[in-house]
Design a protein around this nucleic acid. Sequence first.
RNA 1: GGUUUCGUGGCCGAGAGGUUAGGCGCCGGUCUGCAAAACCGUUUACAGCGGUUCGAAUCCGCUCGAAACCUCCA
Length: 491
Amino acid sequence: MDTKNELYVYNTLDRKKELFAPLHPPHVGLYVCGPTVYGDPHLGHARPAITFDILFRYLQYLGYKVRYVRNITDVGHLENDADSGEDKIAKKARLEELEPMEVAQYYTHRYHIAMDLLNVRRPSIEPQASGHIIEQIAMIQQIIDAGLAYIKNGSVYFDVKKYNLSKKYGKLSGRVLDDLLSHTRDNLASQDEKENAVDFALWKKAQPEHIMRWPSPWSEGFPGWHAECTAMSSKYLGKEFDIHGGGMDLLFPHHESEIAQSNAAYGHDPCKYWMHNNMITINGQKMGKSLGNFITLEALFTGTHPALDKAYSPMTVRFFILQAQYRGTLDFSNEALMAAEKGFKRLMQAKKMLTMIPVSQVSSVNIAAIQQKCLEAMNDDLNTPMVIAQLFEVVRLINSALDKKESFTNEDILAIEALYATFVGDIMGLTDEQAGQSSELINGLMQMVLDMRQDAKIKKDFANSDKIREALLALNIQVKDGKEGVTWQIV
RNA sequence: GGUUUCGUGGCCGAGAGGUUAGGCGCCGGUCUGCAAAACCGUUUACAGCGGUUCGAAUCCGCUCGAAACCUCCA
């Protein structure tokens, strides 16, 4: 009966919304594929980070004790272009004459700074792939012992065809092995070692030019791409946990192969729910490093990218992302970001006006109903755009109350404050960026300047009053002449 | 070629078999010394063609178009 107060999430495994029921309540294990740290974080990184930050926050709001693991991939993966066979991180390190770990550390740091600005909560554990080589080797050995991997020239490959005899490879992505066998392209140099094109590497023997390498029972080399997530998720969340998240682009082959590895090594799927965020597109096309159309978060925040008309604050970007449901593509444009910026400011400004509303004995509003709708929206697979729509209803009510077209009781005002604190602050992680900017000194100075302008206005010296207004605007301070007096806002 | 999605008004985006999404923009009004802000009102929608239904933007089929994945990528 109470279904509206229970969380439903879209499970990619069966492509429908399911009631979320943790394996071991009140604990929830959440694993999300993190960044590969060989480049600056861009807008694309913000989407999964924010999507699963919302999930993390909301699960906590619901009272769950969440262990959120998000890895750092600091062991690069193979490239397939002409000069390849080389580890991506190793390649970049040589170009810049840095230690590979120095590069990884540098970009990890940059990633953290960007995520902090976006107010993305740090995960409970952020394990590095390079720190879990032993665990990955152990897992690979278990797969070999199970007879589902073979060794060729010091490299280890997962035997997908053999695995498929007892389990179904492709159950997450909807792919059929026979189709994959007949359609997969075979242009990788290393593929001649594979028995089948669909087989994937668990361990790769390092070529001489590789500088990232570790000893193993098979060769000196490095783990395959999919190994780290299985090894680290099972180490920190157990061999069966609740939710595995990541970008849709990782569905195949990465997550499909994680399922195969987990089944081969442990006999069952790694998790109960698979959740995937969609991509951010730019002019309808996926943003990606290889396409050369990606916008780094730093460029976005500073407005230095040629495609940008101006800088957009981290909270504007966060709000922009939350205005779309996480499973849909989100198209980027200056126009859309500017609309988000204006909308976000309006949302935050209304909250500040709350203290100016006269308290009434009678209420003309139903805040509890709005709160309930916000909860229902969150419970419906994290429908943040719906939550935001409800919050704008509150904005309208606040502004109408200021215009004396609605009346709030003290309880109403407290309920609205709580609504903001819970949904805007705690759950959606939106903070007021100007909060810290107005010190006592600035407030005092502003009061003085505005008093001077007011004097000029009384004397009908509009030349001077406008001069003050324009000078303030040049400093990005907007003066607002309201019915109840003059206020100001940093724009 | 295969797999998975998607096509909503000027833009971004929810929803979903019958009842206003929301934001931004445009236009009109209130307020203002003038603006801005705020409020009120208004304007364009569900790719196309069939089918199911009392009724479809919402279900089914086809057509057209777009994207992601199949190769590193969030």
